[in-house]
Structure formats: C-alpha cells, structure tokens
C-alpha cells in the first residue's frame, strides 16, 4: 500500500523503539494520525522539547533536563547514602518504590571484557570521588554474574575509604512461591535468612 513518504519514515523510526516491530509501529502511528490534535501534536512538541533539553546529570548520571538532576539538587536527599544502580531504568524503579531517600550513582552498564567495558566507561573513578564524602554506598546491582562482578569490583575500589558498603538482599520476592523459584535464588535466600 502506498503511503506518504513522511508517514513511512515515522513508522520506520517508531519501529526502532523497544517493544515495537513494524506492525505495531504502524498501528501506533495510525492511532497518532487519528488523534493528531489531542495527542500527536503535544507528543511531537514534548519530544522536540526533551530532545533539546535532556542531559545526563553531571553528578550521578541520571537523565534530566538540567546539568544537575532534581535528586542531586534536593538538599533533603543529602543523607550521605549513595545507591549505585546499573541503569537509569533501575533508578526509576527505586524511585517508584519511594523507600530510598538518598542519592544515586548510575553506572550505565556492567563491567564486560567481551564488550570492552572497563571501570572508566562506567564512571567508577567518579563514584570513588563521590564516596569520599558519603556515609554509605548501597550496591543495588542486578543479581547476575556481570552485576555481582561489578559490585565486587566497586567494593574493592571503595575498600580503603572507610565508607560503609552494603548491597541489596537477595531471595524470595514478594508474592513469590518457593515451588517456582530457581535453586540459586532459594540458596541465596537461605544464606541470607534472619531471625523471625
């Protein structure tokens, strides 16, 4: 079917987004075209604005629209706790929980020899500098081989600073049933058992 070239370009660009393929991108574009006034125009305007203003926070690596993100510029969050996360999506997940009131450090990935990602690419020297003034560094990295390798590396890098280093607990998730857990998770949960 012949489409306007501009619409085809839009579909091709939308299809590059995570979770969207060519067919779902076509459906999304069609939905936008049908709601040009109430949805498409404000969306286009918001995207254009964010494209111009989005910046990585110079302190923590979070994405915001200013040099320093709202979390780093909030004095109430100067608790001395730094939560180290792998990606901005992890920071957003922590913020959704609303239980952490300190600041963050976004690594942007994990150490990977295969992908030539070393400590400098992850901003670990910058984290070490920040940790000099911190009371606690919480390693909230994924419970994967790469995530925990990175966590141990960071713990080693911070070892001489005298700062408290902690990591998230690993074990049974809320709503989890033992019957469906893998043996690694059950083992981790058993090792991290506590007085009830």
């Amino acid at each position: 079917m012949e489409q306007s070239r501009d619409i085809e370009v839009l579909i091709e660009l939308m299809a590059r987004l995570p979770g969207l393929g060519p067919r779902s991108a076509r459906r999304a574009v069609l939905a936008l075209l049908k709601k040009r006034g109430p949805l498409m125009a404000p969306l286009a305007q918001a995207m254009a604005t964010v494209a111009l203003t989005a910046k990585d926070c110079v302190i923590c690596g979070n994405i915001g629209t200013a040099e320093v993100c709202p979390i780093c510029s909030d004095d109430a969050r100067a608790t001395g706790e730094i939560c180290v996360v792998e990606d901005v999506s992890d920071l957003w997940a922590m913020e959704r929980g609303g239980v952490f009131h300190g600041r963050y450090h976004v690594l942007g990935g994990t150490l990977s020899a295969l992908d030539a990602i070393g400590p400098d690419e992850l901003g670990i020297p910058r984290l070490v500098d920040r940790a000099r003034d911190a009371t606690e560094v919480i390693l909230a990295l994924n419970a994967t081989v790469d995530g925990q390798t990175t966590a141990h590396y960071i713990a080693d890098a911070l070892a001489g600073l005298g700062v408290r280093i902690t990591s998230l607990a690993q074990g049974v998730p809320i709503g989890g049933e033992l019957n469906y857990l893998d043996d690694g998770t059950i083992g981790a949960a058993l090792r991290a058992r506590r007085q009830f």
């Binding site: 690993q170 893998d182 690694g184």
Partner: peptide, 27 residues
C-alpha cells in the same frame, strides 16, 4: 532446560572471579 545453577558463587568475590576466569578462558 536448567540442570543446576551455580549462583552460589555470586556473593563471594574469589569464587565469582574463578567462575568468570573459567568461562572467559574457555570462550
């Protein structure tokens, strides 16, 4: 299909480094 996990090494830096070294050398 999973047979057994070796996730027990994750919380020990030496054991995890051993696992990484074995996998990287084989690769």
């Amino acid at each position: 299909e999973p047979l057994r996990s070796r996730a027990g090494v994750l919380d020990n830096r030496l054991n995890l480094a051993g696992l990484n070294a074995i996998c990287a050398m084989l690769h």
